[in-house]
């Protein structure tokens, strides 16, 4: 909620806010259980995994790239962390090992994209299968249970009544938002997204920045993976596999341009919350899950189209005024 204030009052922000409020109103009408503290808390226990992955994806998309391997990176890290945890490794070490794996995943993506120069969609499509394959090989397709109870804190604990993972999400969002707005690195990310060649000529170390972007994305996927492992006390290779499309949709819904150069993490989080609320409302109202697909697709298109219309409208008015 506090993130809403941080959104600059841009057009997209207003439309997004309207959609957000609209869904809250519908939810309140549709089910008396929707606007209860218990339910809000449970939404914030469910959505941070997707939220964290989506803000990582936002960073990559801002550079004009894309990371289709983010979902399977999450699954691979979940499996690695799960294997380490069940082998009796200390928790901190297990998480570190999975983070190291995430850095490697990010590096591989960055090498393919930044060094070799493969279009990001295709490079990460290949690594998507590669990481999923690796997760399958490591786990033999089995789900890894018997995760030590001490690890449950990450996904099942609450601090002052707020789920820990929601706090992590907020922290990460704030940090990345500050980096994007106030730091040189953030400006470089946006510059690359706007025009990679021009920014290279003006002294941005494109390769280095892209490496950082893909590594950040993979590391965030890894954090999301660890949270999910903790929340459901199980590690599976297919974790995060179904997150990819909703995450890209949420990034776009949040106002980040898929061509790069424009965007922010705050909007992405609102986008993820909107999707989480939709499925929550439908579950509460007892509506078949099939309708969820329809609803999320429609909302994505409606919001984007509406955005575009108002934008064009504004442009035209400005043109008239300048005439």
């Amino acid at each position: 909620m506090e993130k809403m204030k941080k959104l600059r009052p841009s057009l997209n922000g207003i439309v997004l806010l309207a959609a957000f409020l609209g869904i809250v109103v519908i939810g309140t009408v549709a089910s008396r259980n929707f606007l209860t503290i218990r339910n809000i808390l449970s939404i914030f226990q469910q959505m941070p995994e997707m939220g964290i992955m989506a803000i990582g994806l936002t960073i990559v998309i801002i550079t004009g790239g894309n990371d289709l391997s983010s979902g399977t990176t999450m699954g691979l890290c979940a499996v690695i962390s799960g294997l380490c945890l069940t082998s009796g490794m200390p928790i901190a070490l297990a998480v570190l090992v999975s983070l190291a794996a995430a850095v490697l995943c990010g590096c591989l993506n960055a090498v393919l994209v930044a060094v070799i120069g493969i279009p990001p969609m295709i490079a990460t499509l290949g690594t998507q299968m590669f990481f999923y394959g690796a997760a399958l090989v490591l786990s033999k397709g089995n789900s890894i249970s018997n995760i030590p109870r001490e690890f449950y804190f990450l996904g099942q604990n609450k601090i002052a009544g707020i789920p820990l993972q929601a706090i992590i999400l907020v922290l990460l969002t704030v940090i990345l938002a500050v980096v994007l707005k106030k730091r040189v690195f953030g400006k470089h990310l946006i510059a690359i997204g706007n025009n990679s060649k021009a920014s290279a000529y003006s002294g941005v170390q494109t390769e280095r920045v892209l490496f950082a972007a893909y590594i950040i994305c993979s590391v965030l996927c890894c954090i999301a993976g660890n949270i999910q492992v903790s929340r459901v006390a199980t590690a599976r290779a297919d974790m995060g596999y179904s997150f990819l499309m909703p995450c890209i949709s949420a990034v776009v819904l949040g106002g980040t341009s898929i061509d790069g150069g424009i965007g922010g993490v705050g909007g992405t989080v609102v986008g993820v919350i909107i999707f989480a609320m939709i499925s929550n409302i439908m579950n509460l109202a007892g509506i078949s899950s099939f309708w969820q697909q329809l609803a999320t697709g429609s909302i994505l298109i409606l919001v984007v189209v509406f955005n575009k219309i108002t934008e064009n409208h504004k442009l035209q008015r400005r043109k008239k005024e300048s005439n």
Partner: peptide
């Protein structure tokens, strides 16, 4: 009601919503 894909975590979400 149930998950539309074979995703274990989303089934957990549905149970949580049913508790709510």
């Amino acid at each position: 009601t149930g998950p539309t894909s074979g995703d274990a975590a989303s089934q957990a979400n549905i149970v949580q919503d049913m508790i709510t």
